[in-house]
């Protein structure tokens, strides 16, 4: 009986959290569509999340392309289909692997960062202080961050894809004597707008999810230092899960329309 109660309460809290997050998202749209707009803070956040993630994304993307190509080579060589490498790698990176891996990396870096930052602000009552001083903390802290992640993530993903393709080209050039020109010719022959556009739209939603969950977890962080850690941790977990759900839906939608 006790166990059933706990399962019920857990389920209730799960749904309550989702419902709360939905209200949070609704509030975001409401606040984002009304003035004043915190452009300066938005730019600062964009720089913070975009530029400062660039190195991480670049390194990850480069290694991703490199490893992916290295691992696929033997299988393709068995078929004698090394010439398909460029099209295969570019399609899988641009359509799926690039956006998901880079979004997960960003979930770890940006999502947890937002969770921890807002959480500590909540714990140290800075948010309460802002409310008291008449500044709208939601507008200043949450809206700017969610907008920044929504704008920056697609750019980071495109950047990461390009670097991953460069890593792949490097391996092909070293191992397969394929010139960079030939490799990128093959890549652009294989890629169509129907591959790039859905992936970019998907990455916008990824960015929104990272910002939203990170902010939500941080904004409603429970008191105490443990709460900050929890907020940061659960933000990453939730974001990762949500990313896959979004990806899942995006794949179905893409499959229908393209």
């Amino acid at each position: 009986m006790n166990k059933a109660d706990s399962i019920l309460s857990q389920t209730k809290s799960f749904f309550a959290e989702i419902g709360d997050m939905t209200f949070f998202a609704g509030r975001f749209f409401k606040e984002a569509s009304s003035s004043p707009f915190e452009f300066k803070e938005l730019l600062r956040q964009c720089y913070n999340m975009g530029n400062r993630s660039l190195l991480l994304v670049s390194v990850t993307g480069f290694i991703l392309g490199l490893v992916f190509t290295l691992q696929s080579r033997p299988t393709l060589m068995q078929f004698g289909a090394q010439s398909w490498m460029a099209s295969m790698v570019s399609l899988s990176i641009v359509r799926e692997i690039g956006p998901v891996i880079i979004a997960l990396i960003c979930a770890g870096r940006i999502g947890s960062g937002i969770g921890a930052e807002l959480g500590s602000m909540r714990v140290t009552e800075q948010i309460d202080a802002m409310e008291v001083s008449g500044t709208n903390p939601f507008k200043y802290l949450v809206v700017t961050r969610i907008m920044a992640t929504t704008l920056m993530l697609p750019l980071l993903i495109i950047m990461g894809d390009a670097i991953a393709l460069f890593g792949s080209a490097l391996i092909e050039n070293l191992k397969g004597d394929v010139s960079y020109l030939l490799y990128f010719n093959q890549v652009f022959e294989a890629l169509k707008f129907s591959d790039i556009v859905p992936a970019t739209i998907k990455s916008v939603f990824f960015g929104f999810a990272i910002g939203l969950v990170g902010c939500y977890k941080g904004y409603y962080c429970s008191k105490g230092t443990v709460g900050v850690g929890e907020a940061s941790n659960s933000a990453v977990v939730y974001i990762s899960m949500l990313l896959f759900v979004i990806d899942f839906i995006a794949v179905f939608v893409t499959d229908i329309f393209i």
């Binding site: 749904f15 989702i18 419902g19 939905t22 209200f23 839906i249 179905f252 229908i256």
Partner: peptide, 30 residues
Amino acid sequence: MGKSTSQKIKVGVFVVIGTILLVATLYFIG
């Protein structure tokens, strides 16, 4: 925030069911 727990639960259930329905619909269409 001014939202009661039951409201949040209802919205949460709605969102989850809505998402499941969306996925199911997309699956069948696909």
